[in-house]
Design a protein around this nucleic acid. Structure first.
Lengths: 336, 336
DNA sequence: TTGAAAGCGCTAACAT
DNA sequence: ATGTTAGCGCTTTCAA
């Protein structure tokens, strides 16, 4: 079917007005369902709108409303593995309100970051979302007093009056540990990442808490890097100790996969002899693991969606601040 | 007419004009370095601009220039692993021209995708970049006759007059194979993904080509899924055959990692007995591999940067079409 | 119920 | 060299 699509020069509200034989004010009212119009002309205008394939220029509209219908997402993660699902959830929600998301990559260079921010502000963004690779990294530019809503997602914002959205790391580790306990495990170790991550501390706390609730002694707690190599090294250590654990709660999926490999290569059967849980539910990793890895999902898509929800409310004027932690979910596979 | 000072709300060009004791036209000229101004007033205006922390409203500017200073990036990949580096390169280049990137997630639902596109067009984007998970998937919405530059990156666009940017898959596989040949390998197999991927065909061609150039017979060519499991299965098959290969060129890093695991578990030493190359240079995967994996890097950041470059030119009116393939790079690690 | 007109913040042609 | 003015495409009073 051929549409009379004018490739050059999009139709303006004047074109519509002329074609419909009304004034531009009337067209505007029809488009926005404001003022009062006879049902008849409203319909006639809308028909013309469709036939001309007219799309109102939102930039011109913004001049009046003061709202651009766009927000900025600034990430220091080079758009990494954690940013993507957050972005997905965020964009999914915001697009329902016709709000666009400008993605910008925060470098470590404060000057460049400032310039980036200025570009966003010049584009009149209605709000700002800040994401980070690790949850306790702070943005290198001061975002206070910008006069627009700021939401920190998966990153720590100490801006007073700002809103921070994080996964419930502690609850997530609790889930995994509790699951193992219910499966009859009694000597549950925790192999995790570097001490200076807040998430590491919280996950350890969740692990400890679940054990305490079941009157079990905590197994060894081992800190290292977020790598498979560390998972393998830690497992070797654990298995050569006096009392072998019968389960390991890992701080992330990479570590868990290292554990799984080390166990298999030592001839220790997982999950029969030692069960294993990961953290992140990084699908490609968890499924490639042998056995497929039970893992804690931080529901980052949800986290992003929640950020989108909050953002639309804040753009409308709602106040929000403080820290919100969203629940994690356990995805059970073959390693438990 | 003029109201008393309102402290809230960003400064406008009027505020600057008043504070500097000039007309708004003069301020505009100073800001854009157009017309002619005395060095003196130019400086005075710019000082006022800084002291008021004035940021010109680009939306208002767009009304004249017809350019919004933003482009859309539409991806059917849920912002996956391949989209992010492309985005990084793209945004890095475009931000230098103060062009913002709207990221939108193309669903498989054509209606929703159409709505998404309409939102972008209503926001007056100056260009569109289309990305995909697999290079031969086509967008579900017709992008022809939009009247704006369209660039397909890592995705096939058959829009005539459109520009497509792809990695040189064939050259990449050639690089890996040639590297193995130079290392003295003679029986080089190829374990890769599903037949119906264009990239699979091209990589196989590059492998074949490099072997032919060295007067070597192609080893077995095996198609399967993009998974570690397939890598393991293929390796088992290869190693039980009559003539073992002394090297395997893999279609991606996951397959290669499966091969590495299978070799190790069969007691075959890599790279001494069988060398291995991957494809994607997915760092976390390649480095976790034992031994660390030599892999072909598609330089997706570069690809994105190139797209950004082309886009700025096309926005300025340059015409470009056809398909451009950018070279891959071999990252040598321990598996060769 | 409709239209005319005054802007939103800015640029650019035209005066002075 | 600087100011004045007419818009860019739209919304929103205010008259008719």
């Amino acid at each position: 079917m051929t549409e009379p699509d004018k490739p050059r020069g999009a139709a303006t509200i004047h074109d519509v007005a002329r074609a419909a034989g009304v004034s531009i004010g009337t067209v505007s009212k029809a488009l926005n369902a404001t003022g009062s119009l006879s049902e008849n002309t409203r319909k006639r205008v809308m028909d013309t709108v469709r036939s001309l394939n007219f799309r109102p220029n939102t930039l011109a509209r913004s001049l009046h409303t003061g709202l651009s219908g766009s927000v900025g997402l600034i990430s220091n993660d080079s758009f990494g593995r954690f940013t993507m699902p957050i972005m997905e959830g965020l964009e999914g929600v915001l697009s329902q309100s016709s709000i666009g998301v400008f993605m910008v990559n925060a470098t470590d260079d404060a000057d460049r970051e400032r310039a980036h921010l200025d570009q966003l502000l010049a584009k009149q963004i209605d709000g700002l979302i800040v994401t980070a690779r690790r949850a306790d990294r702070r943005p290198s530019v001061d975002l206070r007093g910008l006069g627009l809503p700021v939401i920190y997602v998966f990153s720590q914002g100490d801006t007073p009056g700002g809103l921070t959205l994080l996964p419930d790391d502690q609850g997530g580790a609790w889930l995994a540990t509790d699951h193992l306990i219910r499966r009859g495990r009694r000597r549950i170790a925790h192999v995790t990442g570097p001490r200076d991550f807040e998430a590491v501390r919280l996950r350890a706390e969740g692990w400890r808490e679940a054990l305490a609730a079941a009157n079990l002694d905590p197994g060894p707690l081992m800190h290292g890097s977020w790598t498979e190599a560390w998972g393998r090294a830690a497992t070797a250590q654990l298995m050569s100790g006096p009392t072998r654990p019968d389960a390991i709660v890992c701080g992330n999926d990479l570590i868990a996969r290292g554990c799984a490999d080390a166990l298999r290569e030592a001839g220790i059967v997982c999950p029969t002899e030692v069960a294993l849980t990961g953290f992140d539910n990084w699908t490609v990793m968890a499924e490639a693991c042998r056995p497929a890895l039970t893992s804690v999902d931080m529901n980052l898509i949800q986290l992003g969606a929640e950020a989108g929800q909050k953002m639309t409310q804040m753009i409308k004027g709602a106040e929000a601040s403080g820290t919100l932690r969203l629940p994690c979910t356990l995805v059970v596979r073959d390693s438990t």
